[in-house]
Design a protein around this nucleic acid. Structure first.
Length: 172
DNA sequence: GCATTGATTGGGG
DNA sequence: CCCCAATCAATGC
């Protein structure tokens, strides 16, 4: 059996996804989209090459459209089901708050901390953002430091700058 | 503006 | 336990 996290199944399939901004990699479980990697990310060797699954094919199309939508500064009309089972309770709470940040807006790590009823956990929110398995669709790029500086980004700060610039431009 | 520092939380080994 | 981290506010320069 493949490795499992928190008692949940590991990814069943992995796909390369060609977009206008390069080749993203995504993984699916039986629940939905589990991970999304930027084109520049180091990809792990594929253990689980399973026969094509109809649901995964459908989710792949939806995921591709959602990525392209975000790259254009729009809000995706539809998202694939997201499998957040790899997260702890706190991380999932943070990730759900991230999904509530409207396109074109930002929040500070401290604001997200407050939204999860842990006003002093700003630093932990940063760590939870870093552990976000589905960047772009879970928009951790919209979280910045209280003083207006960018903070960090697991996909590289260039991507964070780029995404925020796209959304800012689109909003004006 | 920038650097330092103490407080603080959640996660992982 | 201990260490790390995508923080923050206060402080001094």
């Amino acid at each position: 059996m493949g490795g499992a996290i928190h008692g949940h199944p590991a990814a069943l399939s992995r796909h390369r996804l060609q977009t206008s901004a390069g080749i993203f990699t995504v993984t699916f479980t039986h629940v939905g989209l589990a991970c999304l990697y930027f084109p520049n990310a180091i990809r792990i060797s594929i253990h689980t090459r399973q026969p094509e699954n109809a649901a995964h094919q459908s989710w792949l199309v939806t995921t591709a459209k959602a990525i392209e939508s975000i790259l254009k500064g729009n809000t995706p009309a539809v998202l694939p089901p997201l499998d957040l089972a790899s997260g702890t309770l706190f991380q999932v709470q943070v990730w759900k708050q991230l999904q509530r940040i409207p396109r074109g807006q930002t929040r500070s790590y401290a604001q997200i901390a407050a939204a999860t009823s842990r006003p002093r956990a700003a630093r932990a929110v940063g760590a939870a953002c870093g552990a976000n398995p589905i960047p772009l669709l879970i928009p951790c790029h919209r979280v910045i430091a209280s003083d207006g500086t960018l903070g960090g980004f697991s996909g590289g700060l260039e991507w964070k700058r780029r995404l925020l610039a796209i959304e800012r431009t689109k909003n004006c």
